[in-house]
Write a protein that binds this DNA or RNA. Sequence first.
DNA 1: TTAAAACTGTTTGAATTCAAACTATTATTT
DNA 2: AAATAATAGTTTGAATTCAAACAGTTTTAA
Lengths: 149, 149
Amino acid sequence: MEPTKNLTELARELWREMAEMRNSLRQYVHVKIKENNWDISMELVEILGLIYKRSGLNQQEIADIIVKDKSSMTYLIDNLVKKGLAERTEDQRDRRNKLIYITEKGKLLMEELTPWVTEIYEKATRELLTDDILNALSVARKMNENLKQ
Amino acid sequence: MEPTKNLTELARELWREMAEMRNSLRQYVHVKIKENNWDISMELVEILGLIYKRSGLNQQEIADIIVKDKSSMTYLIDNLVKKGLAERTEDQRDRRNKLIYITEKGKLLMEELTPWVTEIYEKATRELLTDDILNALSVARKMNENLKQ
DNA sequence: TTAAAACTGTTTGAATTCAAACTATTATTT
DNA sequence: AAATAATAGTTTGAATTCAAACAGTTTTAA
């Protein structure tokens, strides 16, 4: 299938394929959101899904988990708060932190969203083997590690 | 190592790891560019590298290869042209197309850039096996395919 | 041959990302 | 204890991405 290509060539292709995945997912999510007339973006769904599962994270922790820069985080959480989907609280133990909680409204929306978020990942992994994904994961981790050194 | 996690969980982690890779790469490139006082962005390097190797692609083809949307492409190529690194030509055979060529100035810059672009990919793939990357690649391709259906 | 559909590139305005500088708070060193 | 360094969050302006609507050109179909 794949003729003789060196590692760097393959890395480039992997890079490309990942970018394409990002786009496919965005497009897919976009259509779903439109179909259902939800007033939310893919970026906000990502955060909402996280704070739905894990209550009281601070912004930096959220940023680390979903891999965004902290100024984007300020901006995105501002939007969640404006939409009444999340709220910020001061951390009494460390007043540098803002702890983020999902609101009732946020929970309701997320409960509506959850089925098709799951569906997306199921769709993405269709006909794939656990071991292959595990392997891909370790490749990605290793490349990450390499780049950070 | 990885305990019992279902496919969708793994897919999420893969997604996360890919986002992190994207950031690591950006950061790495950013430092290099600053160190060398190059007046160019990561996005423009991506395009420049492509039109250095392949002359006379149109904008849509470039967009497809580096995975960007075509309006971003107009914007980015505008910038390349402004910097004197590329030029647009009308395609006589199909007047919808604009064919993109690298300029002499662009070539010179790209020749300076090439060594460390290669270096980045070498660094990223350090200690990785061809077969593992091939596997990761096919996972990414399959997920892409799944999402597009 | 004409009408419709598909394709390329541009424009627009909004959303998001990005780097950098900044404030406030906490942790570490001296 | 005071000085210093590290951390969390905000702000700023610029860069990039994004979706949508559009104009011009070519291809396809009627």
